[in-house]
Design a protein around this nucleic acid. Structure first.
Lengths: 243, 243
DNA sequence: CGTGGAATTGATTACGTTCAATAGATGTGG
DNA sequence: CCACATCTATTGAACGTAATCAATTCCACG
């Protein structure tokens, strides 16, 4: 199923049934990975483009001393590696953070879409540019925001992205990550993530229930983290929740 | 003149005379900005795509408290805002760091290239994906490297990028930035940049002459910063200098 | 009910900031 | 060509955020 992708792209343009069918046709084959498994490793040149159907993954790089840094969270509806149609090889790796189900789209199917479905092509290009915009915001986050504001900012983003993929209930979404995995994305230790999250709970900003994150006070979260949603480029109204 | 862009794209593919002429035709009109002037401001939707011909610029975002974060350095041959062909509005601003000369390419000229010059289109898409890869590396930099390694890493990158644009002499290139401007990109204060640069000079890694940065020991710089050039996706040989 | 991963807490350390002052460089007008 | 103004680089001292190291508690799951 490619519902999350369709749901996300609908934020950019209303796709025709024909266009939806083309996407669906391309994403026939599915493949599953276990939690913790590598989907693509730096240096590879895969023949397929991967689309997340269920579960979470991350982009990451290994560093000299053996530790690693997460550069992106990939959730249902996100493309993992559309770059490989152009670039020589992957410059980073992708790993399953939960059990994931992926659509394997043959590169030639993507090229077919690029040749024959201009509006769909623009929608995919839009999605790529949004990914780049997210990267810019994460860079600002890492470089100029304090640990607590940074963490809150990513939570705000993930709520809206989950919402765009049709995965929210009210102001909550499934966040199936350990504090350690969060830390690797924020450039913080699991210890410090823990303290930051605790403080935000005390302040009534958010709550956790199982692996579900509930944003209790959206306006406060935005103010606290300096979050502005413009970089996500959602054109739809009502993208922000009411709390 | 679009020499720097052609020089850079030659790292991806050998363009035909016809393709070069098409690019040249698109980039007829030029415009100059003073040092410190904004070229594009967040929220705008410009009608032209800007290409740097001479000088340096930067992408930046303003933060709550009035300070700002630089997300990219743009040097000759770099496109500022090819996104605006798809996205609704700019989610960040671009400013001249030195006096700059830009080519203003009408959006319709870009669309013409996209429709009629597939190899050129792929070359431009390659360039966009490299920009995204640089962003990922900067994110790792900001999140997981110490101030000195981070600074050295960016210097390594700028040497190779300058080289790709045909702007190096031996192992040196013009770096027309204040330590404050560098700091805004690294998420460091000007004071700390100063100390880091001084230490690297003492260690014989690099030297400054006017506004020119000379890499004295490339291998040491790479080892010190954990720099690997793969993310720049240059396919040409001899991209790395001999020291 | 026991086991192992995840979350939590405490104490210490270090990297980089902040504030403040000085020195150097660059540019401009008289 | 000098005097002044301004921007940039440099240095010092104190502070603070987040890392590190080390335990302990919690919890999901077999």
């Amino acid at each position: 199923m490619i519902q999350p992708l369709l749901h996300k792209l609908s934020n950019f343009a209303d796709l025709s049934d024909e266009e939806k069918a083309a996407l669906n046709h391309a994403a026939q084959e599915s493949i599953c990975y276990e939690k913790g498994e590598d989907i693509i490793v730096e240096g590879e040149k895969p023949d397929y483009v991967h689309l997340i159907e269920e579960g979470w993954a991350c982009r990451y790089k290994l560093l000299d001393q053996g530790d690693q840094h997460t550069m992106a969270f990939l959730l249902p509806g996100d493309m993992c590696d559309i770059h490989i149609t152009i670039l020589d090889e992957m410059d980073h790796s992708i790993r399953a953070l939960t059990p994931v189900k992926l659509a394997r789209i043959p590169a030639k199917e993507i090229l077919n879409i690029l040749d024959n479905f201009p509006r769909l092509t623009r929608a995919l290009f839009w999605s790529t540019l949004v990914d780049e915009a997210i990267l810019r915001e994460w860079l600002v986050n890492a470089g100029s925001r304090t640990a607590d504001a940074r963490t809150a900012h990513v939570f705000c983003e993930l709520l809206l992205r989950s919402h765009a993929a049709g995965l929210t209930q009210d102001n909550s979404f499934e966040l199936p990550l350990t504090q350690e995995a969060l830390g690797e994305a924020m450039g913080l230790t699991n210890v410090h993530i823990n303290r930051v999250v605790q403080q935000m709970r005390k302040d009534g900003l958010l709550a956790f229930e199982r692996k579900r994150l509930i944003i209790l006070d959206w306006e406060k979260m935005k103010a606290f983290s300096g979050f502005r949603s413009n970089y996500l480029h959602y054109q739809q109204q009502n993208i922000e929740p009411q709390c």
